[in-house]
Design a protein around this nucleic acid. Structure first.
Ligand SMILES: NC(=O)c1ccc[n+]([C@@H]2O[C@H](COP(=O)([O-])OP(=O)(O)OC[C@H]3O[C@@H](n4cnc5c(N)ncnc54)[C@H](O)[C@@H]3O)[C@@H](O)[C@H]2O)c1
Ligand SMILES: NC(=O)c1ccc[n+]([C@@H]2O[C@H](COP(=O)([O-])OP(=O)(O)OC[C@H]3O[C@@H](n4cnc5c(N)ncnc54)[C@H](O)[C@@H]3O)[C@@H](O)[C@H]2O)c1
Lengths: 285, 285
DNA sequence: CCATCTTTGTGCACGCGTTCACAAAGGCAT
DNA sequence: ATGCCTTTGTGAACGCGTGCACAAAGATGG
């Protein structure tokens, strides 16, 4: 998955837990697929399998919405699709603006997954004058100067930021000032927004780093230390070859000496990638 | 944010909680910025603000890694960058393949955020014969036939899926069979993988739906019901104008009659978007 | 109309994550 | 050296989310 919400701690809005809200779109997707296959009803067990969750969790989630199932039978697919759509606010049309029509912005603009869920791209906005006017995904790219006007005229309340990180906060502020109250941020920055504005972020880099963490664990604890030391000294061939780890005090209180040593090594490395022989990642006390 | 992990419930690998792992990249980014400004040390308070989290949380997170701070002073920036990088496995090089070079795949291939964190795009793979061979972001697009060879030769353990949803599971299986053990999935599907394989998903559509949910709450509970009914009947002008909510029995047990009525209405609507006068979203008992 | 069987809805317990609050640690000035 | 002041590291309390397990509901067949 990508990431979690940023602000507003955990205010379960009127009884529906945030974790449940995050799963509703998942259920909806599975239900839509069933609906297209004209399946009339589905049990919690089947639907849970399709959505990749626990069936008890699914039933509890639905219980927050009301009693929409029939014991002994299951849930009526069409009815549930409607109820979830309504709960998520997908029965109305949400105009969205995308700001920053670069690599990612182009992909987003061409993405079909918007319209299929009630989200309508109202405008594409970019600061580059040479980009404005170009037709992208059937829409002309508008200049940033028009941002406020576009937001107001189209009653846009959801904005997508796909600008470089440096511009994100500024763009965010302009969006908010113009009336946007929900932001989906693709730039790798922490956005600060006033209360009442929701920010969700999608950060590819973070996802990869989390995967790398687990990947590293899979190859054994110590490979990393070896790799870290050997990184600039030798070529390939060392990977995945542990060296016998003294797992005692794995990360326990490094003495001052150790800190200083590593710090020095790091400094050396940062400055220029010179050879460094002894870099004790874990130091004996 | 994008999304959460899919499989492997909550196995805190060797003591570091999953929630903490997910925040380490955030800290790392903030620390890198400080490092570039040559800031020598930083307090938990400052760093927490930069990363957008609570300072107590940050300190506790760091405590899982070891005692890396100095009381009365704070944390040494360079040292912490090194420790977190090491913990996340970023001191080694991670070759990555991107499968599905369409709109999104192109954007990903051109994304600079990979290399800056130790992720190297080893290959771009697509099934479309007319696409193969084309140079994208400095790399030739390779045909799916070569997938297994590419994975093995480059020792790739992380795969990114950016194909249409229908192809995702199949691609996933081929990746896993070839040796990939971590997958970042952009296709809106639930992937099933064997134990030991990590899947994280990024789903733009889900993020927007979650935003829509909260957005809807902001405009008052009932606007939705009104909008739902009026959706195909009238034009703009109704939005964001609450009408005084009768919050009694918001979603309480609808009687059989109500279910049937709504279901009928839904069916009507699904078939063709004809006019529907009375669609009781919430029915009096 | 009754028995049986399926499946929902939920009470309950448990574990993870968050946050508070504070003692201990260490730097720094005197 | 001594005391002060800042900031870490963590014990403890709390709340949310998850999953088990089961009683009640309802459909279905006889
Ligand atoms: N490309 C990806 O796959 C990818 C993946 C994850 C995250 N991101 C992030 O998404 C953002 C965009 O990535 P990209 O690859 O599309 O970059 P890009 O440089 O191709 O596009 C950025 C666009 O934003 C425009 N822009 C700059 N400042 C602006 C401003 N103040 N107002 C409006 N528009 C402005 C630029 O003109 C440009 O068209 C970056 O922050 C990047 O880190 C990209
Ligand atoms: N474009 C976006 O902004 C965006 C956003 C979120 C999610 N997504 C999802 O990402 C995926 C890709 O989106 P897109 O807009 O790039 O679609 P796209 O149709 O432009 O690209 C898909 C690419 O995958 C290739 N492909 C198809 N089957 C394949 C296979 N079996 N093996 C290898 N390659 C195969 C196609 O040739 C094509 O080049 C979709 O699942 C989409 O739902 C896209």
């Amino acid at each position: 998955m990508a990431t979690g919400r940023t602000h507003r701690p955990a205010s379960r809005s009127r009884g529906i837990p945030e974790a449940t809200v995050a799963r509703l779109p998942l259920y909806l997707r599975a239900l839509t697929a069933l609906s297209e296959r004209s399946v009339p009803t589905v049990s919690s067990e089947e639907l849970a399998a399709a959505a990749g969750v626990n069936s008890a969790k699914l039933r509890k989630d639905f219980s927050y919405l009301g009693s929409y199932g029939t014991r002994g039978v299951g849930y009526d697919v069409e009815y549930l699709v409607y109820q979830i759509s309504r709960e998520l606010g997908l029965t109305q049309d949400w105009p969205v603006v995308i700001v920053g029509i670069g690599n990612l912005g182009h992909a987003l603009a061409n993405y079909g997954g918007f319209a299929s869920r009630g989200f309508r791209v109202a405008a594409l906005i970019d600061a580059d004058p040479s980009a404005t006017g170009k037709i992208t995904a059937g829409l002309p790219v508008r200049h940033t100067d028009e941002l406020e006007t576009i937001i107001r005229e189209n009653q846009v309340s959801i904005g997508v930021i796909a600008t470089p990180a440096g511009a994100a906060q500024e763009v965010c502020e302009r969006l908010v000032a113009a009336g946007v109250t929900s932001i989906l941020n693709f730039a790798p920055t922490v956005l600060s927004v006033p209360d009442g504005v929701d920010v969700r972020k999608v950060d590819l880099s973070i996802e990869l780093q989390i995967l790398a963490f687990h990947e590293q664990r899979k190859s054994g604890e110590e490979a990393l230390a070896a790799a870290a030391e050997a990184a600039d000294a030798d070529g390939p061939g060392t990977r995945g070859k542990p060296e016998k780890s003294q797992k005692a005090t794995p990360l326990a209180a490094p003495a001052k000496a150790a800190k200083a040593a590593v710090k020095a090594a790091v400094a050396r490395k940062t400055g220029r990638s010179g050879p460094d022989g002894e870099v004790p990642a874990v130091m004996p006390a």
